[in-house]
Simulated assay, not measured.
Amino acid sequence: MSEISESLAEAGQGALAGTAAERHAGSHGDGHTHESHCLNCGTALIGSHCHACGQAAHVHRTLGAFFHDLLHGVFHFEGKIWRTLPLLVWRPGRLTREYVDGKRASYVSPIALFLFFVFLMFAVFHATESHDESAGGDRVIQINSSLESVEEDLDRLKSERAEAVAKGAPTAKLDADIKDKEEALETLHDFENSGVKETLGATGARSDIPQVDKALKTFRENPDLAVYKLQTYAYKFSWALIPISVPFLWLLFPFSRRFHLYDHTVFVTYSLSFMTLLIIAAMLAGAFGAGWVWMALIFVPPIHMFRQLRETYRVSRFGALWRTWTLLWFAGAALLIFFILIMAQTGG
């Protein structure tokens, strides 16, 4: 979202620059302005960009240039994304090390890449999941209802439909409502017969932390609603995975003078970006009937972690191997903490 705001800001800036250009050198027929001083801060220009504020020396005032700026601001076109992705996939350690060492102009920043992939992941998820759009949030409410109340609603809707048929009235809306209720009833029956409810109730899991205890209670009473809320809020709190994961990575290099928290943060953010990209690829493969890809991709994260650890921190093969094994466990712990945080926020 920050890139979208940045693009809008650039559009507004271009409009102001156009006014200034009329006062200074004017614009040529090719839609470019040719300035001797920066239109933003007035500094004398030396090269293609102002050395004081960084604005481009020439302001493009054509429709094509406007959409070019839009694509550049939102998607980081002009080569950055295409230089970053191959390294992220195949040489993640080199990408991380070069970014940490200051070579950044050629690459998309880790946080921008991560946020874009998270947005893309949830867009793909909602586009590929099988659901009836007419059901929407009502289905969640139905699943949260008791079995008896859904059965009563279904009987009532069927009676209303019979009356509508007798009167010759349209029944499309009632048919859709009946279908939703029948699907909700089937889900509740499956849930009742699965034994999950009894198992969760029997465990009586509790926590001394009130918010976490609330989350556990919500999950025990209605796992379907809990999963729905997890899908809804995971996008908003996805950034929290970064601060959750960094301390775990620090434990692999405790008290190291060579590597600092900043190094670990860049590592984690690029790693999370790749894992998010992996989930996107798996979802798209599943949507096209290649569900087996999920199984194949299980082996990719450890290999990617090994390669990133080895080149980023310049450790031996053995050092990268045991750290990869440990990092896999740490990743599971980080995901568990993230799940508890989300459920604690949405519990009750």
Rank of each mutant, 00 (worst) to 15 (best):
M1W: 01
S2A: 12
I4Y: 07
I4V: 13
A11V: 09
A25L: 04
D30H: 08
H34I: 06
S36H: 15
H37L: 04
C41D: 05
C41K: 08
G47H: 12
C50H: 04
C53L: 14
Q55N: 07
H58D: 14
H60I: 06
H60N: 12
H60D: 13
T62I: 05
H68E: 13
V74N: 05
K80G: 01
K80M: 09
I81C: 01
L85A: 09
R91M: 03
P92I: 09
E98V: 06
R104I: 03
S106L: 14
S106G: 03
Y107H: 04
V108Y: 11
S109V: 04
S109G: 12
I111K: 10
I111G: 00
L113N: 02
L115Q: 12
L115H: 06
F116C: 01
F119Y: 13
M121E: 04
R139M: 14
I143T: 08
S145M: 11
L147G: 08
L147R: 13
E152P: 00
D155W: 00
R156Q: 12
L157S: 05
K158D: 02
E160R: 10
T171E: 05
I178F: 02
E182W: 00
A184K: 11
A184M: 06
D190Q: 15
E192G: 03
V196C: 08
V196Y: 08
T203A: 15
K214M: 04
F219Q: 04
R220C: 11
E221A: 13
D224Y: 14
A226P: 02
Y228W: 08
Y228A: 15
K229G: 03
L230H: 13
A234G: 01
Y235C: 01
F237M: 12
W239S: 10
S245Q: 10
W250T: 13
L261E: 06
T269L: 07
T269Y: 01
L272K: 00
S273H: 04
M275A: 06
T276N: 05
L278C: 01
W292E: 02
W292C: 02
W294F: 12
A296C: 08
I298A: 10
F299P: 00
V300A: 06
P302H: 07
M305R: 03
F306D: 02
R307H: 06
S316N: 08
R323C: 01
T324D: 03
T326Q: 10
T326Y: 10
W329S: 09
F330N: 00
F330H: 03
L335F: 11
A344M: 10
G347R: 07
